[in-house]
């Protein structure tokens, strides 16, 4: 399909708050992006009008119970059928921050064996505990499966901000070794927190800002079409959003976040 035909749906509910900047990122790249309230989808729209779906950042329904949990159950209850079709047709789904939490809570990620009836992983309370807003380095780990990072070479170090209090990716302790192996086998690992030079954080704070298992910052499903990450690519899109632009003589026009949106669009143009 042509770039300008691409339609991206940025879903929102009460408490979603990163929708505008996410839409801006897509629009800057020449695709149609619309922010749609879930109430509208239920009443008069369909997810299947769109080629890609984004769960943006925020505090959906106040993040009561667990971050993302209420929105996840809501989606399955009210729009479960459409969502399943969306996934089966390999239409891409992106979850940023709260959106990542939603994708894990819906069982879409890691999705080892398709949509899981229960969460197979968790984005737990940060260690050290508390909300943390800072720029971090991410090392790209994917061998090419993830459609959201297909334009990013493996091993490249990217810079983006995180801002959350529940971002510690973890598996059940007794399964973590085996499940980590499966992530590697399926090429589901996408980003790990690292130092500026690319060395993994190895759990050290604040390089790993939340105590995430194996320094995991983002993963995709085995098909590579569903991707969730805690950092915010939409806040690392333009040069002037970078934390050090006042120090530089020259800045590239865009930040690293753009690569993710661009990869997605590239995939849509090629596959649909």
């Amino acid at each position: 399909m042509k770039r300008e035909e691409i339609k991206v749906c940025i879903l929102r509910v009460g408490g979603t708050n990163c929708d505008a900047e996410t839409r801006r990122a897509f629009q800057e790249l020449g695709v149609q992006a619309e922010v749609v309230h879930v109430n509208d989808v239920v009443k008069r729209r369909s997810l299947l009008e769109f080629n890609a779906l984004v769960f943006p950042g925020g505090f959906s329904y106040g993040d009561y119970v667990r971050a993302g949990a209420i929105w996840a159950k809501w989606m399955l209850a009210k729009l479960g059928g459409e969502l399943k079709t969306f996934v089966e047709e390999n239409r891409p789904i992106l979850g940023i921050c709260n959106g990542f939490q939603v994708l894990v809570e819906t069982g879409l990620l890691p999705g080892f064996d398709g949509i899981s009836p229960y969460p197979e992983a968790a984005l737990a309370t940060n260690l050290p505990p508390g909300y943390n807003c800072r720029w971090v380095y991410l090392r790209h780990e994917n061998n090419g499966k993830c459609v959201f990072t297909r334009k990013i070479p493996k091993g490249k170090v990217l810079r983006m901000p995180v801002a959350h209090s529940e971002g510690r990716f973890m598996f059940a302790k007794e399964k973590e070794k085996r499940l980590l192996e499966r992530l590697y086998e399926n090429d589901q690992l996408v980003f790990r927190y690292c130092h500026r030079n690319g060395d993994y954080a190895n759990g050290s704070f604040p390089t790993n800002p939340n105590g995430s298992f194996h320094d995991i910052a983002g993963i995709c499903n085995p098909e590579g079409t569903i991707f969730g990450l805690m950092p915010h690519p939409e806040r690392a899109f333009y040069w002037w959003q970078q934390p050090d632009w006042t120090r530089q003589q020259w800045m590239p026009q865009y930040g690293d976040g753009k690569l993710i949106f661009e990869s997605l669009i590239d995939y849509l143009i090629e596959k649909f």
Binding site: E21, Y131, C133, P161, H232
Partner: peptide, 10 residues
């Protein structure tokens, strides 16, 4: 300061 989101809205 880090417990306040100072980047949201981009």
């Amino acid at each position: 300061i880090r417990t306040y989101d100072h980047e949201v809205k981009g």
